[in-house]
Design a protein around this nucleic acid. Sequence first.
DNA 1: AAACGCTGGC
Length: 545
Amino acid sequence: MMHRTLSNAKTITNLIYQGQSRQAIVLFHQVLKNGFKITEFLLSAIVRACGRVAAIKEGKQFHCMAIKHGFNRDMILMTSLLDMYSKCNNITEARLIFDEMPQRDVIATNSMISGLCWSHLTLEAIELFSNMSRRDAGSWNSLISGLGHSSEGRTGLVFFEKMRLEGAEVDVMTMVSVLAICSDLAALSNGKQCHGLVIKYGFELGYLPVGNAIIDMYAKCGCMEDACLCFKNMPLKNVISWTALITGYGKQGRGLEALEAFDTMEVEGVAPNKITFLGALYACSHAGLVQEGWRVFNTMVHKYSIAPMMEHYTCMVDLLARSKCFSEAYKFIERMPVKPDTRLLTAFLSSCCSHKNLELARSVGKKLLESAPEEAGAYMLLSNFYGLVGDLQGVAKVRRLMLDRGIRKEKACTWIEINKTVHSFQSGDRSHPLSKEIYNYLQHLFKKLKANGYVPDTSMVMQNVDEQTKEEIVLGHSEKLAIGLGLISTPPGTRIVIVKNLRVCVDCHVVTGLISKIEGREIVARDSNRFHHFKDGLCSCENHW
DNA sequence: AAACGCTGGC
């Protein structure tokens, strides 16, 4: 009996160690029925496994068990439980455990900080962090990376600066977290500084995540050549390194190079996974490579026996519909073994609208409405569609639905870095010191463009106002304001780089192209989907958004 | 013997 107990415990911990959390939980339940003796050690391990796979129901059972066995004064087990709850999105219960712990050490507090950030309670996280009497590298890292995951990367960078000023020990995990924030923000100068620090500390060898984060940072800042160089210099690469490279090429619209990298990866014996395939498929989609996309999809299913996720289906529909293969896309959806979700329908509708396939758009739009999407983007698209076909009642209906369902549009925001200072703009923003000059420039530009046949596309304006006001709204879009600032505050001929949190708008896309020609400037715009390189009036995306 | 913070896709 004693022997069996020991070997069962060993099997369970081995399963957890190998990342087989589900199987470990199942086995744990089985051995419990055989009068298995529970220890706080094993309970802690299994609770951690629950957190990994978000098994809140099982996690709660183990919490009860812990109380029944009188383990509730065990700090380590309680830390596992609070961490499990926060990973299962139950921050209230996590906080309750934390507050009721007889004593809390650094690790318990770090875990709480991390949990608070992931629930977007960043002010509480910062407060807890500030009140700590003793902090370790993990405390800083929990806060910095947590801020990054909570869309507060700028604040994360501020804390990184503070960390260095205070002389706190910076480790590999700090660098990986900060680099990930730089990728997110396309903050090239911060990213380069991090790269320098990594070399200075000697972190670049022996720990793959650092090199991977550097590749991704350069790729997401639009510097593919630097990303490539770092990639080539890595003594060891894994599937994540390759995926970062492939995705980077894809987002630049360099689909063929992405596929070339994919082939080389296979030749070098690295097996692609689901995420690699997503990257390769999006690379095809962004470049309009339909045949290649099919090949990639079939390779995934037949050669690697990977079952497609909804995201893969969405990507295929996106690829087909963007290339006007509507009936092929429709057939593809019908043959899917699962029901299309909101995101897939949104992607489909988006292409129907941009190619003005109104009949199909109507039927897809109807399905989309029935699926009650959570994302504001779907409603914006639907509203645009009804506007496009002149169905004002439809527009009103969509707007009412948004109100009823409590869905708010995410605020558009564009930023630009000039001399290491970041200037951020919202739509209609007048808070910038050079605001007057920016608007003056844009108004002049609009006049000039209109005289040459440009007609502002105001179809995306949701407010019920007259055409003149709509044009003013479109003129004040955050992309245009950021570009305007770039133009008036950098020497002629300088390349302009802007970053937007959402997809770039149709009108801004047209106008940016025209500006690039008139002003003789190269303009790079990174939106939430991909890069747009504008030069001489043309965009690298060739309208494959 | 057990606990926190890190890299690739939406």
